[in-house]
């Protein structure tokens, strides 16, 4: 496999009428990498993903996938891609097995080969016992796994996942992460969007933080935390509506303060000593928590907004 980038974007813009969803972004993703787009809804993640997937025309700028231009080689690009969309679009008129088989046929894979691959993949996503049933009878997590299996029918060089675990319960998320991690180990390039920090930290070698159509930071999860946050965070909760009142009293504590609706965050190298100082200053928070810094803190720092909706 060559090391030329699988995704190369330069000043990439997507407009819908007068609305600019993607406002000139630059990207480079190497083969085998796990790359993430982190951002809230409406940040431009899905629009970018659709352009990469060759199902949405580029408005302006340069985009190359496997070195090919999606405007002229869309079909050839899609032939080498696996796509797991945000909303499940499984074929409800077909069984899970037939969903995979016919999807392989769209790639011109011989029928017997399709059946063989479909059985292997149903095994991989732990759905073998559901292969002949109805798609509608599957749970949300099972549908997402089946969609991933479908995206793997053509043995793609790159798998695009748009918010793969949104709406799934914790157990289903962990099963999914495990499967994605195995794919990553097999050398499949993973490109995913998410608004979950833990997902980005678990799966991504490198990520970009997007906000309002722009890339506002780029790096590995650890780099981003080191560069944009402190080692620890002290979370304080005061009685309802009193967070802002305590802001003045907290001044000078830690490196930085963030007052949110439900809590106050104190960014510091040493959370425990900051908490002692809070008590020394005579404040009595209802609860307190010292934790390691996360990507959420990075996001808050960069955009001034919380990721959680």
């Amino acid at each position: 496999m060559s090391d030329s980038p699988v995704i190369l974007a330069h000043s990439l813009v997507k407009r819908f009428g007068s609305f600019e969803a993607v406002k000139g972004i630059d990207l480079e993703v190497s083969p085998g990498e796990s790359f993430g787009f982190l951002g809230p809804n409406g940040a431009g993640k899905s629009s970018t993903m659709r352009m990469i997937a060759g199902v949405s025309p580029v408005t302006e700028g340069v985009l190359r996938i496997f070195g090919l231009d999606p405007a002229v080689a869309g079909s050839a690009i899609r032939n080498r891609l696996g796509v797991v969309p945000q909303a499940d679009n499984l074929d409800g008129e077909l069984t899970p097995l037939d969903n995979l088989v016919i999807y392989g046929r769209y790639f011109d894979i011989p029928r017997s080969e399709c059946v063989e691959r479909a059985r292997e993949l149903l095994e991989f996503v732990q759905l073998t016992d559901r292969s002949g049933g109805r798609v509608d009878a599957l749970s949300g997590g099972m549908k997402r796994r089946l969609t991933i299996a479908r995206g793997l029918m053509n043995r793609p060089e790159m798998l695009l996942l748009d918010e793969p675990t949104t709406g799934l319960d914790p157990q289903a998320r962990h099963i999914l992460w495990d499967r994605l991690y195995r794919l990553k180990q097999q050398g499949v390039t993973l490109v995913l969007t998410t608004h979950y920090m833990d997902e980005a930290e678990q799966l991504c070698d490198r990520l970009v933080v997007m906000d309002a159509g722009r890339i506002v930071a780029e790096g590995s999860p650890r780099d981003l935390i080191t560069n944009y946050s402190t080692r620890e965070v002290l979370e304080l909760r005061f009685s309802a509506g009193q967070n802002a009142q305590h802001e003045a009293q907290l001044t000078g504590l830690g490196e930085r303060l963030e007052v949110l609706a439900d809590r106050v965050l104190v960014y510091t190298e040493d959370g425990e000593s900051a908490l002692r100082e809070v008590h020394t200053r005579g404040m009595r928070p209802e609860s307190s928590l010292v934790r390691r810094s996360s990507l959420e803190d990075v996001f808050l720092r960069l955009t001034g907004r919380s990721l959680a909706e």
């Binding site: 199902v55 079909s75 969309p85 008129e93």
Partner: peptide, 14 residues
């Protein structure tokens, strides 16, 4: 409703 064509269009089909 079923978004069947969206899925087809993500493959080499146009």
């Amino acid at each position: 409703y079923s978004k069947t064509y969206d899925a087809m269009l993500a493959s080499p089909l146009g």
